[in-house]
Design a protein around this nucleic acid. Structure first.
Lengths: 334, 334
DNA sequence: GTGAAAGCGCTAACAC
DNA sequence: GTGTTAGCGCTTTCAC
């Protein structure tokens, strides 16, 4: 049987209150003699405080919930790492939840997290539906949303990266490289980032006085296979573009493979730009020009904001938008 | 203030015991009238049971700890996903811990998890040192180790994939393709998987009566950069190999890039094989021949075993070794 | 400097 | 069918 605070106190011949104080460092008023004795005994018997019990009285669990669509999606591990790093530094522990963009799972997790009394939640919602926000609003638990904001969520504390600008600068770069007939292979347009990137794409064209060509947008999934198939299909019919701007790197990598397979030279015949700067972007030839999203930082800052909220030091920024960075490599000619 | 079981019971005009019973589905002996009334009230007031409180009495937190070196390392997200999927199915929630192969962090997490009273731990240890095992042995908490076994851990319940066989079959394949002077770029040899893969490599050579050439082993890190540098260095001096078997896909992808950069044809001049079958293995040209590790399954089965242990249904297998699968693609000629 | 006591929200015998 | 009661292991106030 694991020793409890009571065991320690009876061996040390003091009250449990005294033991509690030294365990929690609130021992200004404890003589150093008893302090040391208690510490020794704790060591001897291998006493481990039961945080469940203390949480029950302090109402703090020092854990935060992280809900993301899928940790196996290359976008999220870094983000999760950012969250975990800051959390850990502050003594928080994180509960990982994969929602698979499934609203039911998402709701189930939110319930679960509330039952486990997490101190706060970091949330990458799968959609904008507002019913979910209600569930979250009702509970007074601090929430930070990441990447996509949830319309109607009361405390609109959210971290996003500036998707529109990211896409805008990428496409401006392409145009300045001399590409004019630029295809955009996007992710699913139900997600805000996809919408915003498309917006940035259009803004760049407009600013450069380039009319978007016919069929300039192909909407699909954020996967390499999707990028590959799309290009293959296009080529088997008619491929009338000199540039491809992809919704993410996975799509771009698939597209690159298809282009090369068809002996279309990148970057000479076709310029190619991705989004995210995943590790693999540098592992292909030519290396992929892409937009770096500050994934790690987004996670880190989200955790930072959340901990502020938990401590009731309301962060003065209610919504932080992190800037992206265009990384020019080999798939666009300079 | 969030409603508690007491609030519900007083509104419903029953005892808290009755409410507890219906909340936990132990309501065979409750009249359906009161059952429904209680359920309605729960709904109305938005009562959420406090699992912290119930954990305190049941001694079960329905939480398991997952300690891995780094979720941002491409090997682990899938594994984590496997763990999470099974856990979730069984009503468990997982706490994610990144140890960074840092023994101190590792210990700190183990303590933390014990304090939070997790029901079990799934653990990819960073090394074999046995002091750590002691800490874990002392506590009676169920532990499953993944990928690398910890020497001296009492309950040797561990899930590994058969690294030796994986490497063995890969190298046999290379030899049968006609490659004879095969370099092995391994990860750090302090880790068991690296040792075992090297063993498999040697076994294949021996069986085929091929003398390992001079400098056949280069030990380093599991990164693409490392693979790239290694090949670049070798080529700048003398590159006298016709095959490269890499400790993982990242290394292989880096190596591929370097080989191609030096106009060495893969697979004609040099055959290349990786390990892991990460998603990117199919996104390069030629596609990478590699050994598929059942990452997801390892995680899933680890969670499965752990839950058995938690329920005291000691799994009869104490150590499960999952088989790997060679995936022949374009970097070896057939 | 230290301890007694109340109580956090819940479960599980057991009594009725 | 339902309620009473005794904790689970801890923190915190206040008294000494």
């Amino acid at each position: 049987m694991k020793p409890t605070i009571k065991d320690v106190s009876s061996i040390a011949d003091v009250s449990i209150a005294t033991v509690s104080k030294v365990v929690n460092g609130k021992d200004e008023n404890i003589s150093s003699a008893t302090r040391e004795r208690i510490k020794r005994i704790i060591e001897e018997v291998g006493y481990v405080p039961n945080r469940i019990a203390s949480s029950l009285v302090t109402k703090k669990t020092k854990t935060i919930g992280l809900i993301i669509p899928d940790i196996a999606n290359p976008f999220f591990p870094e983000l999760a790492r950012g969250v975990e790093d800051f959390s850990n530094k502050e003594g928080y522990t994180i509960i990982l939840c994969n929602s698979d963009n499934d609203l039911e799972k998402e709701d189930a997790y939110i319930d679960m997290l509330q039952e486990k009394m997490v101190d706060g939640i970091i949330f990458t919602a799968s959609s904008n539906r507002s019913e979910l926000s209600i569930a979250l609003n009702k509970s007074s638990i601090p929430v930070i949303t990441i990447e996509r904001n949830i319309d109607g969520l009361q405390s609109q504390n959210t971290i996003v990266s500036n998707n529109e600008n990211g896409a805008y600068y990428a496409v401006i770069h392409m145009i300045e490289c001399g590409y004019e007939k630029i295809l955009h292979i996007s992710g699913p347009m139900v997600s805000k980032p996809a919408q915003e990137r498309y917006k940035g794409y259009l803004r760049a064209l407009k600013e450069k006085n380039i009319e978007p060509i016919e069929n300039h947008l192909i909407e699909g999934k954020y996967s390499g296979d999707w990028g590959f198939e799309t290009i293959q299909n296009l080529i088997s019919q008619r491929f009338d573009y000199d540039g491809v701007f992809c919704g993410n790197d996975l799509i771009a990598l698939g597209a690159l493979k298809a282009l090369q397979l068809n002996n279309i030279n990148v970057p000479n015949q076709v310029g190619l730009v991705g989004y995210d700067d995943i590790y693999m972007a540098q592992m292909v030839r030519p290396e992929l020009t892409t937009v770096k999203q500050p994934n790690y930082e987004m996670g880190y800052q989200a955790a930072e904001m959340l901990v502020l909220m938990i401590n009731n030091e309301e962060p003065n920024l209610s919504s932080e938008s992190l800037e992206t960075r265009l990384i020019v490599r080999g798939t666009t000619r300079v």
